[in-house]
Simulated assay, not measured.
Amino acid sequence: MENLPMRDGLSLDSHFQPIYSLAHRRTVGMEALLRATEQGKALSPPQVYERYIRRDERAAMDLAVVRAHCQHFARTPAAQRWLFLNIDAMTLADLSYVQQLQQIIADSGIPPQLIVLEVLEQALELDAGLLEGVALLREQGCLLAIDDFGVGHSNLDRVCSLEPDFIKFDRHLLRSAVNQQRTRTLLSRLVRLMHEIGALVVVEGVESESDVVVALDSGCDLVQGYYVAMPALVPDRDEQITPRLDAKWDELMNRELLRRKLNRRQLELSRQAFVQTAIALMQGNEFRLAAQPMLNLPDVIRCFLLDQEGRQLGRNLNVRELSEVNRLRFAPLEDTTGAVWSRRSYFQHAIDQPGVLYMSEPYLSMTDTRTCVTLSMAIEIDEQMHVLCSDVMLPK
């Protein structure tokens, strides 16, 4: 690597790891990874960089590694693929280094539009120099990726200000999602949030079959990890990668079809019971008696009744009481008499289309923090418009 302030006996090289598009079923990018040896002993990138303490030395190292990766990548017979390059935020914050980086990219012959500069999320500071450096590289055509999002104290404001093209989720977020249902739900919602700010999502650290299933289920765009392909001078081709991922995709689809079938059956029973309850209410039956068809179903959590302004009439009719411990935990929210739910979609849709049964998207119940859907319908009781509601759990 030319212009690199190397110590004696230190040899540096680069390997590439595929970044794979689940929708396109092919590799769309390669992350360049530093490989180093000293007298035959392998060194990790941190072990190499710790030898260069001064800022100018570390920046020189950064630029030399980028130059070598670009030269190596330019020689590979790859199709149109992005080259993901790790770069220190301090390098991007200094315009003299940014100009050198621009020249390295221009000299490589790789279209700047295929260069993705990766910056660690926790290392970012939104100073004027960094924003200006990123803007200059963007003008050249380069793309920006924020790496390791979700580790430590992630800052959405910082992410939004930089307007990245890619967000790479930290592998620890995936590990947690594999082991905890709540984190798995959060992962999917984080993917949707990143899409809303205009970034594609890469899930890193896909190393096992369980990781693949969770990544596929999250709705992410791209995946990277040992299960997809190991880093190598010449990594696995799509002919090797695609069958591995297709097999897990088929497994997930079969599981999803079964889940949907169970959901449809469960929700059909809930709809039938809901209509019975609505008819009984319109016929003048007392609410607790009218709601029995709903309350008898195992997946129904509660029923409640709203007036035409969305204000709750009376308390919830709960199918079963919470345990004493959980009841005390949510005691401040327990009494919902007089609560106003007019901003909830289940009320707004029902009141806009009286007599039409509506089912909400899954959401977190404020009463006891369980995930549920709400069935709702606007009906007339004693010549006054009311909205009948019932919260229903979905199978996991």
Rank of each mutant, 00 (worst) to 15 (best):
A135Y: 04
R329I: 13
V275A: 06
P45L: 05
C70S: 09
V373F: 00
C389S: 02
D107S: 08
R189D: 10
D246S: 14
T277W: 03
L306V: 00
D236N: 11
Y97S: 15
V275D: 04
H153D: 09
E361D: 14
Q276S: 11
L281M: 15
R182T: 11
L257T: 11
S154L: 04
E324V: 14
P45G: 06
D211E: 05
L186I: 12
P77A: 14
N296R: 15
L317M: 05
I167K: 00
V340P: 00
L95K: 09
P5L: 05
L126A: 07
V228Q: 05
P231E: 03
F84A: 00
L357W: 02
L156V: 07
A247S: 14
N155H: 08
R192G: 01
P293M: 01
C160F: 07
P235V: 08
V28G: 03
E383C: 11
P332W: 07
L233A: 14
I19M: 02
Q180G: 06
D382G: 12
Q272L: 13
G310A: 08
R237S: 14
E57Q: 15
G129A: 09
G150Q: 01
P243R: 05
Q292R: 14
E118S: 03
A247W: 10
F330G: 01
L131T: 12
L85P: 05
H15L: 09
V98E: 03
H153W: 07
V119L: 13
D217K: 12
F84D: 02
E207V: 08
V373H: 03
V392M: 05
G219Q: 07
L306C: 01
L262P: 00
D8Q: 15
L186F: 11
G9L: 10
R25L: 09
D307G: 02
R370H: 14
L306K: 02
V202C: 00
Q71C: 09
G152N: 07
E239V: 13
T185R: 15
L328F: 11
G205E: 01
G310K: 08
N263E: 15
D211Y: 07
M30E: 08
Y346C: 02
V213W: 08
F73E: 03
E256Q: 15
V28E: 08
A74Y: 09
Q312M: 05
L4S: 09
R55E: 13
I146D: 03
S208F: 01
R244I: 05
R184S: 13
L85I: 14
M282Q: 15
V66G: 00
Q224V: 05
R237I: 09
L313K: 08
Y346P: 03
V300Q: 06
N155P: 01
L173Y: 09
T277H: 06
G219L: 06
V213D: 12
E31P: 07
R244A: 04
H349T: 10
V223H: 01
Q122F: 00
D211P: 06
V228P: 04
G205F: 00
Q224A: 03
E196R: 13
V116I: 07
K41E: 12
L33S: 06
V206F: 04
P111V: 04
F169E: 06
H153L: 11
F330N: 02
V119D: 04
S342E: 12
T371D: 09
P46H: 04
Y363P: 07
L63N: 02
D211A: 08
A42K: 13
M393F: 12
M359G: 01
T367Q: 10
